[in-house]
Design a protein around this nucleic acid. Structure first.
Lengths: 342, 342
DNA sequence: GCGCCAATCCAAAGCGGTTTGAGTAATGGA
DNA sequence: TCCATTACTCAAACCGCTTTGGATTGGCGC
């Protein structure tokens, strides 16, 4: 079905060695010969067999992504698709393959070691780190090049990660609401076992503390970030004796839920009640225009995917390039969902 | 770093042949020996090198998925993540790897041939088929085992696909609205170059025709399925001299947009205006409860992913098992978003 | 005691590339 | 004219596994 190097060499009356070198740009091959080989390869639609190549070179030319399968998890979420898309762009450009493994929750740790032991990948990206996540220590021990999308507190040594500044981001957004006179600010967060959610909470609490406001447990929630979750949070919190005048949401999806809950009660965003959300710039949930619908802390998760991929590739190709870290700042965009406290 | 078969064999005083056969369950190896080998393999944390294995066997033990990278496209959408998750489950169970390629739009066709020629995969799944899609003919010509998620009209020979019955689904949903007395029914569709959208449109038109209603171009829209798209459609259509009393939406996301647009105008779903949407059962956009928020044609895209993977695997492992096709019916679930026409 | 067969195990040849270590022809300098 | 280079090209080994085609051994029937 497909041509092999040997066949190609035979058809040219050359040795496999020469053909290989011609195609891989080695200097010791005659320019004329190289041209001839390249033409022939083109014509025969020759593509080197990936497996043979990586067997011979010892490099897999592939990066692994492991995602837990359970539906109860935060991570099979829209974020994931965009991040993957961003990372995939870079892999394609760099001649790397992306291999994705969907595994049951408890097999997750095992999956990384397995991928590496089988020589299937040169490095892995860790998704959805939890505050207390054993994977980082595990991977460090295995000696696998890896990069974490996010961070964790459970590492006992420096490691490579790419994260957004969740804490500062939410602190600043909370301050923004405080400046508008809001004092009852709700936090509708993702599961706080997830590192990103814990950091957002920390930023929120920090801003409240600075303003001398005691956090109210009734105004803080955590759960997987679905639309109905946001809806319920809005409904229930607004029925409190002392309801919030503003909400912080951990994702656009949750914010949509909040919005629906509030509008069901006849409340208008920006006038009666305010919302600030985090916006990952997902392609099908754009928050754009002259005046975006939501005031938001914004950061493109697709761009994060691109950067993460680039970082991991340098870790892979330049061993010992040490732990690489990058903290992306978010921007605070002003939208129609915020206004002064009533 | 990792043990090889040869090393393992040496440490046991056996030949690689015997160790290989012992681990792969061949009958001609002594039961005691097999046990001994298995124990040793376990202890040494031996995992056969995937690349070497597939080089030797000629099977890649991997399935390819190609997704176009452009943001303008329908396909980098939430659907994709859930479908992948479903398919990935099956691959993991079956010992297959999933390799994902994100490519620029115009490289898409090339990517399939490339994957196969390099021997990187045993088969591919085609995502987001368009009404007129050259990929199917291309792949058939290449002799690659493939399965289409959806269908296309551009095939000149039978091919394997898994699809939901979009046409019947939308026809039935439209009839449902007609039965409620609606006569002005809008269609807020995905891009109709996409096969699924074209079929939904056909179903919608069919139902209208049966009821003797002439379709009104002002009530039919197509675009990438974002939330703002739904919002705008609702706003603009409701300002028509003769506005619709009901909407058909192609996805939950669009339905959310419609809902927001309508509620902005003080209209209540199910009372003032009706919506029926298609619901892919995405995990973070659940449409559940005793009375779901939206009346919907429902079908789990995650389950579709599982089935598609199973089908492709049989195509791969049993060559000549002929074109396999499956048409999944959707269920019509009644929610709070529909009511009699006013 | 001999031949035959089943039960085990192994050496060696690939799979399709890369890479090391030479070999050959042409070139240039003395 | 001869030798040392330089420029190309190639044969063979290897990557880690599977698989073909024996080789060896012991038990069994006669």
């Amino acid at each position: 079905m497909s041509v092999t190097l040997k066949q190609l060499a035979a058809s040219l009356g050359l040795s496999p060695t020469t053909v290989s070198r011609a195609l891989n740009g080695f200097p010791e091959v005659n320019a004329a010969t190289r041209e001839r080989v390249k033409k022939a390869a083109e014509r025969a639609n020759y593509h080197p067999n990936t497996r043979a190549k990586s067997l011979a070179t010892g490099r897999a030319q592939a990066i692994g992504h492991v995602i837990p399968a359970s539906t109860s998890h935060e991570i099979v979420n829209p974020i994931f698709a965009d991040f993957i898309a961003g990372a995939g762009e870079i892999y394609s450009q760099s001649g790397y393959e992306m291999i994705l493994r969907v595994v049951a929750d408890d097999d997750e740790e095992h999956a990384y070691g397995d991928l590496m032991a089988r020589g299937a990948v040169d490095g892995v990206i860790v998704h959805g780190p939890r505050t207390d996540d054993r994977r980082v220590a595990l991977l460090a021990e295995l000696g696998v090049p890896f990069l974490v999308h996010g961070r964790t507190s459970a590492a006992n040594a420096p490691y490579s990660w790419l994260d957004i500044n969740n804490q500062r981001s939410f602190r600043r957004a909370t301050q923004f609401l405080l400046d508008f006179g809001h004092r009852r600010i709700a936090l509708v967060n993702g599961l706080e076992a997830m590192d990103f959610a814990a950091r957002r909470r920390a930023g929120y609490l920090e801003a409240l503390a600075e303003a001398g406001i005691l956090p109210d447990p009734h105004l803080m929630r955590q759960a997987p970030m679905t639309e109905p979750y946001g809806h319920r949070a809005a409904q229930e919190m607004m029925q409190l004796p002392d309801p919030p005048t503003a909400f912080m949401a951990s994702s656009m999806i949750v914010a949509y839920g909040l919005r629906r809950g509030l509008s069901d009660m006849g409340l208008k965003l920006g006038r009666d009640v305010s919302i600030v959300t985090h916006d990952d710039e997902l392609s099908y949930l754009p928050n754009e225009g002259d005046v975006p619908m939501f005031t938001a802390t914004r950061s493109s998760v697709r761009e994060a995917g691109r950067r993460a991929a680039r970082m991991l590739l340098t870790l892979v190709t330049q061993p010992g390039s040490g732990p690489l870290t990058e903290l992306m700042e978010t921007s605070l965009v002003l939208g129609a969902s915020t206004g002064p406290a009533r």
